[in-house]
Each structure stands twice: as C-alpha cells, then as structure tokens.
C-alpha cells in the first residue's frame, strides 16, 4: 500500500477560559483523533491552551483576496455605524 500524504488540519487553541479559540497553525494527521493529539504536542508544549479545535483544512470556505475590495465595500461607506459619527454636546455624561 502506498500512502499519500495525510490530510491537512487547521488548529485553533483557546489559550485560557473566557477567550475564544484562535488559529495557531496547521498540521498533517490521518484522522481527527490523531490531529488532536498532534496539535497538543505541537502547539501546547508550554501550556499555551486549555482547549483545542481541529478542522480539516478542506472544510474551510474562505473569501477570495481578489474580491476583497468589492466584498467588504458595503461596510466602508457607513460611518454612521460608528459611535464617533455622532456629535454630542459637551458636558453630557455616560454616552
């Protein structure tokens, strides 16, 4: 039997309780269980995490860098979505 390369997994680590999982890197593993164990050895050798997610890289759908301008444009012309857009008389508190 010839083995082709093990699939690629993306690793997300929660560094401590109260924070969300953050992308740490990627690794190869034959299945989810080994991906978790390899992620533990590779990305948390110094107590960097309290929880790990592994996701097959092939399962991720990403936006295209080529279309990033039109894709994100709808957000660019709506400054009224930011609190700094509004003028509040001086001296008004708790706003």
């Amino acid at each position: 039997m010839t083995t082709s390369e093990w699939p690629l997994w993306e690793v997300f680590v929660r560094s401590r309780r109260g924070l969300s999982h953050t992308h740490a890197g990627s690794l190869h593993a034959p299945d989810a269980e080994l991906a978790l164990r390899n992620a533990r050895d590779l990305y948390t050798r110094r107590g960097e995490g309290v929880s790990i997610w592994v996701v097959p890289s092939a399962a991720i759908t990403a936006s295209s860098p080529d279309e990033k301008d039109p894709f994100f444009e709808p957000a660019a012309d709506k400054p009224y979505r930011h609190p700094t857009f509004y003028e509040i008389p001086e001296g008004v508190k708790h706003l």
Binding site: M1, T3, W6, P30, D31, L34
Partner: peptide, 16 residues
C-alpha cells in the same frame, strides 16, 4: 516510519 504512516492511514480509512 513508513509502516506507522500506513497503519494510521489504514485505520483512519477503516473508521471513515
């Protein structure tokens, strides 16, 4: 290490 890689791949395939 070839046999280890092959065994792990075979195990993964069987379980899938």
């Amino acid at each position: 290490g070839t046999w280890v890689r092959e065994a792990a791949a075979a195990y993964a395939e069987k379980h899938t």
